[in-house]
């Protein structure tokens, strides 16, 4: 398949302008879901169409793009999206290094390497409405957001503690943005939630199928919902990475045999790789 006849980064300029306008509104009202005219993309809904449209609208030929899925650059969906941009955005550089990237499109993780000013995080969002399990009608949830009526969400957290002794959502744990809007952080593990708080990077969220964009501007307060006496605790597997030894990163569990053998490795492949290189260099020195 050739990609001749398509505009830079696939979307036509009119569509990009429309999305950028929606993004500006989203940045101006942090955490608020802004409806946008999501287009059909050549990738299926639920596979990152929202994130791809956001990236396509903000990317330029001078950008350096990193795409991760589950924290890794080499998962199939990340590869597929990176190849898509390499094909439709001539001149665009791609990277696996967090530090080098100007735009990082992600599904389900925030990199371990701290983000810096000038970087843009683009989150793929399957379900932008944090209240949908409690109230499926979007006409009603819209009203609840408008009235900042979030008692219902707190009731759910209460129930989690009453039943399980802890807040139950291990991922996509709802956050309050700038003290005003309840927001779904996308299905990142709760371990990553604190990284959103006062982040120097611009964080953009795209939900293609649900046709919503939202944003957290740099240095914005992002608080995970909790109770004063049951504070939010980010969770990770207790253990350290079998490859780089890190004991402070989010770990993937690898089942090594069918007799219950398992080991843990960093979910963030770039971070883990860098640590291994560094350790090798130190050993050599």
């Amino acid at each position: 398949m050739t990609t001749e006849g398509y505009n830079f980064a696939y979307l036509d300029e009119g569509t990009k302008r429309m999305i950028r306008r929606a993004l500006l509104k989203a940045v101006a009202v942090p955490g608020h879901q802004v409806p946008f005219g999501s287009r059909e993309m050549p990738l299926p809904y639920g596979w990152g169409t929202g994130g791809i449209q956001v990236t396509a609208s903000v990317v330029g030929p001078d950008d350096v793009l990193k795409v991760i899925d589950q924290g890794a650059d080499d998962t199939t969906n990340a590869v597929s999206i990176r190849r898509f941009f390499a094909r439709v955005a001539p001149g665009l550089r791609t990277t696996e290094r967090t530090a080098e990237a100007t735009i990082i499109q992600t599904r389900h993780r925030i990199p371990e390497t701290p983000l810096r000013e000038g970087q843009v995080m683009v989150y793929q969002v399957p379900q932008p409405e944090p209240l949908f399990k409690l109230e499926p009608r979007r006409a009603e949830t819209k009203r609840l957001h408008a009235l900042a009526d979030y008692g219902l969400m707190q009731v759910k957290l209460y129930e989690d503690i009453a039943r399980h002794g802890r807040v139950g959502s291990s991922y996509d744990h709802p956050v309050m943005v700038g003290g005003r809007y309840l927001m779904a952080p996308s299905p990142i593990p709760s371990f990553d939630n604190p990284k959103m708080h006062l982040s120097p990077a611009l964080q953009l969220f795209g939900a293609g199928r649900e046709r919503r964009l939202y944003a957290v501007p740099p240095y914005t307060e992002v608080r995970s919902l909790d109770f004063d006496d049951h504070p939010f605790v980010p969770l990770r597997a207790s253990g350290s990475c079998a490859l780089c030894g890190a004991d402070h990163t989010y770990l993937d569990e690898m089942v090594t045999d069918d007799r219950g053998g398992r080991l843990f490795v960093c979910s963030d492949t770039d971070y883990c790789g860098e640590r291994q290189e560094q350790q090798a260099a130190e050993r050599a020195a």
Partner: peptide
Amino acid sequence: VSAGGNVGERLMAVGARHYG
């Protein structure tokens, strides 16, 4: 929702944030 959650909802709606 449990009995406790039912009674607690209005408290939380007006800002109560201490589970105990």
